[in-house]
Design a protein around this nucleic acid. Sequence first.
DNA 1: CGATCTTACGGGATTCGTAAACATA
DNA 2: TATGTTTACGAATCCCGTAAGATCG
Lengths: 294, 294
Amino acid sequence: MAISYRNMQAFVCVAESATFAEAAEKLHLTQPALSSAIKKMEEQLGGKLFSRSTRRVSLTPEGETLFPTAKRLLNDWDEAFQDMQNLFAMNQGKLTIAAMPSFAESCLPGILKRFHGMHPNIRLRVLDVVMEATITSVLSGEAEIGFTFEPELKDGLIYHPLFVDDFIAVVYPEHSLAQEAEVSLQAVLSYPFVAMNRGSAVRRWTEEAAEGRGALNIVTETGQLGSVGQFIAQGMGVSVVPELCRAQMKSKGLVCLPLKEKPLSKSVGLIQHTRGSLSVAADAFWKHCAATFS
Amino acid sequence: MAISYRNMQAFVCVAESATFAEAAEKLHLTQPALSSAIKKMEEQLGGKLFSRSTRRVSLTPEGETLFPTAKRLLNDWDEAFQDMQNLFAMNQGKLTIAAMPSFAESCLPGILKRFHGMHPNIRLRVLDVVMEATITSVLSGEAEIGFTFEPELKDGLIYHPLFVDDFIAVVYPEHSLAQEAEVSLQAVLSYPFVAMNRGSAVRRWTEEAAEGRGALNIVTETGQLGSVGQFIAQGMGVSVVPELCRAQMKSKGLVCLPLKEKPLSKSVGLIQHTRGSLSVAADAFWKHCAATFS
DNA sequence: CGATCTTACGGGATTCGTAAACATA
DNA sequence: TATGTTTACGAATCCCGTAAGATCG
């Protein structure tokens, strides 16, 4: 029993025309159809909207008050409609991506550049936070997609592996291991060690891998892998970091060495939350990543 | 091909419900009907609005962005609809009435009081201006209805007579005519005369009536009938004014006398503009006046 | 297997178009 | 009389309801 969009459109069109016939043509309707549409609308509202003299049609005072409102309503309606179409067509919209720093500094820029080339009207936002915060922001919905190592607890998460990261040893150029082609984890651990803070996944995994291969001789702890590199460059020690950091470490003049027998292999991939679904933009991004690393 | 009000309503209702079935019940629809309505809407917009798992339905990110907009659109729509219904039912609205001062001071208050009693939600506005301005404001549309003497030029005006005003003589109590039951116009004109300014209808009509009955001996001219009364009260002269002013003159302690043979009879009535039509409130007011003076 | 959504299809209401009647300058 | 609106009525369309099918937990 509610008034329809089409009737409101008819009203505005007649109000902007001199005659019913003229308005009917604009609306691709016949005169009688338009006439009855207006008639129905008037019945619903409880009074006349137009004052009809056979020569010319004009708005009643009530129609006059409805007119600007009607135009605004139609405008808002169409605008909302088009916004949604654009959103689905990825002609507009925004996408928030969380990524752990090692990924954000290495792979992400290239991926984002290609994605932006494909969908230039999608505004991209990156949350460059530690692995735990990456997971948290995806769970909370702040980010739709996250890049992390495979989480231990996948409650409420979907994890999609992209590739495997084999951790590498990092030493300063003057170090005695620097000339080796590859080194054993045990050998690395025998030197003073620059570690991540307790609580970080890299630290925990390093300690797990070190079990039975000798105790860590930690000289410094820090919160970011970038800082780890800085301490190594100062000659304070050596470390074991994700391969993702290779370029970052090399740029600091450090030497990266593969570990014998790959004792630290961790899957790197995408996460999304299970409840709800991805936006079309996020879905496209997801597929883009999956294709890139396939 | 535009999206319908009903579909938008369906979308909001589903978004606010846990399942399609629940929403369908609220909308007094069956589940399949609602399902197809949402499906159609999704096709029109070009993407999914809901993420359906057979257990629970939830909004997609795109649906999430549409939701607040949709609620607002429906709200605005309903509000406009109800405003119009109220306007036609005279539960709201405003009415502007122009009236020449003599009428505004005499009859109008009583008329407005009764009309307001009948339609208490119509805001009334009175333009208390001279006769010429009354006509102008009706022609311009500033006022919908006006009270004046019958206009000479009725171009673009509809005039509806209400009653006939027989002008009266006004003298101060000590005047020699004050004791008469009625006086001739000629007798009045033989005394010093307080007149309206040139350009006013009362002045012109008085001069027309005075033709051949002796020249006006004008001692003072003023722009308002109220001032005319004040000058008479000061003993400066006598005058001839519309009967509408009787109460006003009496309240100043003046004596009002009918004129022999009614040489100045003027019709008082309502005017509206010809183009367009009256609002329901104005129409009701018009009918109310016609009935009151019938 | 139960709960829920989707598809298929028939009936009913709404809307549209054609033709004729009507109203006004 | 000419122009433009309304009424009448048949046809197409859209929307809804019932019943059966599909899907997920």
